[in-house]
Design a protein around this nucleic acid. Structure first.
Length: 115
DNA sequence: ATTATGACTGCAG
DNA sequence: TCTGCAGCCATAA
């Protein structure tokens, strides 16, 4: 990687995602300080540092951007499932699991809000 | 310096 | 609701 500066910020943003929740590439980009660089996030995550919770990052559709049959995608689904994030039709309900930075101080998002 | 590519996103059909 | 296309910009060659 050439510019670890941007990657560093992106990694830092990803590490802030609470367990059991997910964030979109665009969201991470904004938090990292690069509003229009959603794609850069994906590019950066390509580095896949082991200590990074990259599996909590999905696209705006709520699904994994990686090929369905890829090892990374399978790993991601399993890890999310382990954290309580349910996938329906290959997608997850963003309205329910998407991380809200402003709400990270709240006790906990209502789990049964829209059953 | 220029061109190609991508773990994206939003809008149009 | 779902699929396709253009726009986006850093990184790599």
């Amino acid at each position: 990687m050439a510019n670890s500066e941007s990657h560093k910020r992106i990694y830092a943003a990803v590490r802030q995602i609470p367990r059991g929740q997910v964030a979109t590439y665009g969201q991470i980009a904004v938090i990292a300080g690069y509003p229009k660089h959603a794609r850069l996030v994906g590019y950066a995550l390509h580095g896949c540092p082991r200590n990074l919770p990259w599996h909590r990052v999905v696209n705006t559709k709520g699904c994994i951007s990686l090929p369905v049959d890829s090892t990374a995608a399978i790993t991601q689904r399993r890890r999310l499932a382990d954290e309580g994030v349910v996938f329906l039709g290959g997608k997850t309900d963003l309205s329910r699991y998407q991380w809200c930075p402003d709400q990270r101080l709240l006790t906990h998002p209502d789990p049964g809000i829209a059953e």
